[in-house]
Simulated scan of single mutants.
Amino acid sequence: MKELEELTRDIREKLPRLKNSIKAERLQDSKNNCWRIFMGGIFMGTTSNNELSKYVVKHINDDEIKLNNVMEWINIIHEGDRYYFFIFKELYYRLFEFWNLSNPYLKDQSPELITFLHSLIKTKQ
C-alpha cells in the first residue's frame, strides 16, 4: 500500500527517534534462521548469528508506528495553525472513531483510516 509507506515515511521524518530504528526480516526460504537487517530503512546485510538475531527481533515491535506516534505526529504537523484547538479536536475525534484499539500498530489499521491520515500529509505540503 503506497499510502501507508508514504505516511510511515512522513511520521518517521517528523519524529526523529523513529528514524534510526533497527528492523529485521526473516528470510522465508531460510532453514538456518537467517535475517536481513535494516537500520533506518537502509539494508545493512544478513546474519544467521543467533545472538544478534535475538537482539534485533526484540526491537522489531518497538520500531513499529503506534497510536501514540500518530497522535504526536498530528500535533507536530498542525502546530502553529490559527485554529489549532479546533483542528486538533476534530482530528483526534476522527482518529479515535476509526482506530481499531485492539491493535496498536498503524500498519494493521483500516484502509479508510490510512487514507484519511495520508490526506493530512498532502494538505501540509
Rank of each mutant, 00 (worst) to 15 (best):
S110M: 04
Y92A: 00
K54C: 07
S53N: 15
G41Y: 12
T46R: 01
L113M: 04
S53F: 01
N61L: 07
I74D: 03
P111I: 03
K14P: 03
M39D: 02
Q28I: 01
E51R: 15
G45C: 09
F38T: 04
W73Q: 01
I22S: 11
R36N: 14
E97R: 15
M39N: 10
L120W: 07
T47Y: 08
S48A: 06
V70H: 10
F43D: 03
P16V: 03
K54R: 14
K23G: 11
E64W: 06
K54V: 05
Y93Q: 07
L4V: 02
K66R: 14
M44G: 08
T46C: 01
E79S: 15
L91T: 10
K14E: 04
L7K: 06
I37F: 08
W35V: 00
D63N: 15
W35T: 00
N103Q: 08
K122H: 11
E3K: 14
S21Y: 08
N103S: 10
S48C: 14
S30T: 00
R12K: 15
W99L: 01
N100G: 08
K31R: 03
L67Q: 11
I65R: 08
V57K: 14
R17S: 09
N49V: 02
G41D: 08
E64L: 10
S21V: 06
K31T: 01
W73Y: 15
Y84L: 00
N69R: 02
Y93I: 00
N75I: 02
N100K: 11
I37E: 06
N103H: 06
R26N: 00
N33H: 03
L67E: 08
G40F: 07
Y84K: 02
R94N: 15
T115W: 02
F86M: 02
L101F: 07
F38H: 12
L15S: 07
Y93P: 00
T46H: 02
P16A: 04
I37W: 05
A24G: 15
N68I: 05
N50Q: 13
N69I: 01
S30I: 00
T46A: 01
F38W: 14
I60N: 15
F88V: 00
E3Q: 13
D108R: 06
L18F: 09
N103G: 05
R26E: 00
W99Y: 15
N33E: 02
W35H: 01
I37A: 05
G41T: 09
K124S: 09
Q28K: 10
D62H: 12
I60F: 13
R17L: 04
G80M: 02
D108P: 03
I121Y: 10
M44T: 09
E79G: 11
Y83H: 12
E5L: 05
D62S: 14
E51V: 13
N68Q: 10
N75R: 09
K122Y: 13
E51Q: 13
E112V: 11
M44C: 13
S48H: 08
F96P: 06
S48G: 13
T115N: 14
